[in-house]
Design a protein around this nucleic acid. Structure first.
Length: 725
DNA sequence: CTTGAGAGGTTTTTT
DNA sequence: ACCTCTCAAG
């Protein structure tokens, strides 16, 4: 028996060594999902059932793909390069580069990220001379992307209302423009690839025969198109190994179809689904809470996590009067934990929406606790980096008008809107790219000079890139275009220059890791394609779009608290987790409440949050919170009511807790009428105090009380359960 | 072409 | 409250 099978439990072993049929592994949080997936690959190869080149494994993030490669390489002494392991988009990109001529794309097609796509859409709206107010670009973008997620072209879509009709019109024009300029958005990567496999029987059969084992991670996150893509790659002679957890499906809003799990069971004749329910991450109370919350969802495939580790500490509930106080309580507790030798790196603070991080950050900053915020601008999304890349893009693909528009006047060369308009006119008339059209446009002296300069820059850059390495080309570019000089004169330019130097670094690293730039040659003639002149350049550009870089704000400090949204926390684990902002309207978010589906997704999100914690879990809510410049008064989240009583700790020194019982919120036992300023009242947790003032009436009434032991507090009368003395 | 005032829009996000 | 974008004046 291979040594890497030794430490698996029986269910995991069953999953890993499953026979030659498609299978579905329902893997709960912390049940060793990634381990099972990677061990299966290692086992298939180790037992000579598969050669590396017969493996195709798909993930959603580059991080997950890298993790997978890393784990496999620790189990097997083989060259992992032969395997196709990557994201849906990465693999489709690879396939489309091989078969670019079959799908009508230039080999050096450019990949648009979200931002680029939006810019192109705006351009299309302008080109079509449509009123931008009637066609909100963001909505149009959403329309196009969700259509592509469902595998739909513009003529496949029902135009149910006026907006979808108009959006469709732009979809058509947008696609035409992308095709002309050799631009491909994220959805297009998948759709184009799917259509290729569907239409071209030869290519389809080739890949079906080649990939004997298809493995999919986070299956619950697949959208319709991804499901179809997997389906078309599958055939009688191969199998799919799907791993997922319906309870952790939190990306419905971007097209993920939880139902794909159920459809998979039918479409792929899954006789028995293997459930991994033993959890290796969290202690008992935490799992009990997770199980209790998720039980309230309908339509689950059903799963119950358990552990052999013992119950651990109960979950702490924290109540505060405001978001600022909440931050203070968290800080106090973090300090306590540090004294008990908890590593600050292993403590995380979660929130539902990014806007909530500011108050926490502010509080952390003022007490000098180091922290790291996940999310935000990634490296390749930074303005200055995109500018620099645009020069590379246009030198690789002169038809790339997006790139032209981005940098024709950056740094400023005196080419203003008027001139660009003129050039666009000519381009439209003569059906040319902007760079080409610029040559034929008669312009005023200053603009003419600027355009001339720009053209010579592009020409020189292109020539240089043919003779020199990628890294040298980037260095040359920074100097030639005057981008650095420009930022040197700007007040906030220092960081930007740093980033541009980092770009040179990124180029060097890329070059190092991709020494041959063109794909490893394969025997099958369908796979192989001759190298192309600017191969490494366009590969680097694709890499920049597909892998936008680190997702964290910079932090040079070694130990930091981890701040992130619950979405960003998926797949991670921490010894200690603070889940903040557990209030109705925030979590569950108010926008999700209109449909039951929305609420269930919020509950899954809560489930994800809870199951991130290994040892300690704090659940916190505040009575009031600043949102969009206004103070809002909130009721505790309904999810708190779904927690099992036996796993909670309601009171503990400075960490105050409350009993939340929503049935009581609107039917206070003690009429608020009896509460008047000056009266002495008693609170179950805070003890005795004197009412200072009252705001409002009925269930929303708030009372300010000066307690003998804990000082002044604002309470919501209806659930504070105050009794008059 | 740059700058500043005003308007609008704020769930979650990877590729 | 705060950030991004647009439009008009300098």
């Amino acid at each position: 028996m291979s040594s890497f099978l030794r430490n698996l439990n029986s269910k995991q072993l069953e999953a890993v060594t499953g026979g030659n049929k498609s299978s579905l592994i329902l893997a709960g949080a912390g049940s060793g999902k990634t381990r099972v997936l990677t061990t299966r690959i290692a086992w298939l190869i180790d037992t000579n059932q598969a050669s590396p080149r017969e493996i195709l494994a798909v993930t959603f993030t580059n991080k997950a793909a890298q993790e997978m490669l890393f784990r496999i390489s620790t189990m097997l002494p083989i060259n992992v390069r032969g395997m196709w392991i990557g994201t849906f988009h990465g693999l489709c990109n690879r396939l489309l580069r091989h078969h670019h001529s079959e799908v009508g794309l230039p080999r050096s097609f450019q990949i648009l990220d979200n931002n680029d796509q939006l810019t192109v859409i705006k351009r299309v709206i302008k080109n079509e001379q449509l009123n931008i107010d009637k066609y909100p670009p963001k909505q149009v973008q959403y329309h196009i992307n969700s259509a592509k997620d469902q595998g739909l072209r513009f003529n496949d879509i029902d135009e149910v209302d006026d907006l979808s009709h108009r959006a469709n019109q732009i979809y058509l024009a947008y696609q035409k423009l992308c095709n002309q300029e050799g631009l491909v958005d994220f959805g297009e990567l998948l759709l184009r690839c799917y259509e290729l496999l569907k239409k071209n029987i030869l290519i389809r059969k080739h890949y079906q025969a080649r990939f004997k084992y298809l493995l999919v991670d986070e299956f619950q996150d697949t959208n319709e198109l991804q499901y179809n893509w997997l389906q078309i790659l599958s055939c009688d002679s191969n199998t799919i190994f799907a791993v997922g957890d319906d309870d952790q499906s939190i990306y419905g809003f971007r097209g993920a179809r939880t139902n794909n799990l159920k459809d998979f069971v039918v479409d792929f004749n899954i006789a028995d689904t293997i459930k991994l329910e033993q959890n290796y991450r969290s202690l008992g109370h935490i799992l009990d809470a997770a199980n209790a919350v998720i039980k309230n969802n309908t339509n689950r495939l059903g799963k119950n996590l358990w552990t052999s580790k013992g119950q651990g500490d109960p979950i702490r509930l924290m109540e505060s009067s405001s978001d600022q106080e909440e931050a203070q309580y968290v800080i106090q507790e973090v300090k306590n934990l540090r004294q008990k030798d908890y590593d600050i790196n292993s403590i995380a603070i979660f929130y539902r929406s990014n806007a909530q991080s500011r108050v926490i950050e502010h509080a952390l900053f003022s007490v000098g606790l180091p922290y790291k915020v996940y999310g935000g601008l990634r490296f390749f999304e930074r303005l200055e980096v995109k500018h620099a890349l645009a020069y590379l893009r246009i030198s690789v693909n002169p038809k790339d008008d997006s790139a032209f528009l981005r940098v024709v006047n950056f740094p400023p060369r005196g080419v203003g809107l008027k001139s660009i308009e003129k050039i666009s006119q000519i381009a439209l008339q003569d059906k040319l790219g902007l760079l080409e059209a610029a040559e034929k446009t008669s312009l005023s002296g200053k603009a003419k000079e600027g355009v001339g300069k720009f053209q010579s820059v592009i020409q020189r850059l292109k020539n240089y890139s043919l003779e020199n390495s990628l890294t040298e080309t980037i260095e040359y570019l920074l100097d030639l275009t005057g981008i650095i000089t420009h930022y040197e004169q700007e007040k906030n330019g220092v960081d930007r220059i740093e980033n541009l130097k980092e770009l040179v670094n990124a180029g060097a690293v890329f070059e190092n890791e991709n020494p041959y730039s063109n794909e490893e040659s394969e025997n099958a003639n369908l796979d192989a394609k001759p190298a192309f002149e600017n191969n490494i350049l366009s590969n680097f550009l694709a890499y920049a779009s597909l892998e936008a870089g680190e997702n964290t704000a910079h932090s040079d400090k070694e130990g930091s608290l981890q701040l992130m949204t619950v979405h960003a926390a998926k797949g991670l684990e921490f010894k200690v987790v603070f889940m903040t902002g557990l209030e109705e309207g925030l979590f569950p978010h108010e926008n999700s409440l209109s449909e039951p589906v929305g609420l269930e997704e919020e509950r899954r999100l809560m489930y994800v949050a809870i199951t991130r914690a290994q040892q300690l879990l704090y659940l916190s809510f505040a009575q009031s919170r600043m949102l969009h410049g206004q103070t809002r008064w909130n009721i505790p989240s309904r999810f708190l009511d779904e927690l099992p009583e036996t796993s909670l700790e309601r009171s503990n020194g400075k960490i105050k807790s409350i009993v939340t019982d929503n049935t009581n919120i609107f039917q206070s036992s003690d009429s608020t009428d009896s509460l008047t300023a000056g009266r002495t009242v008693s609170h179950t947790k805070f003890g005795q105090g004197i009412i200072i003032q009252i705001e409002g009436r009925g269930p929303d009434a708030r009372v300010q009380v000066n307690f003998e032991n804990v000082g002044i507090k604002w309470l919501i009368a209806s659930y504070a359960k105050l009794t008059t003395i």
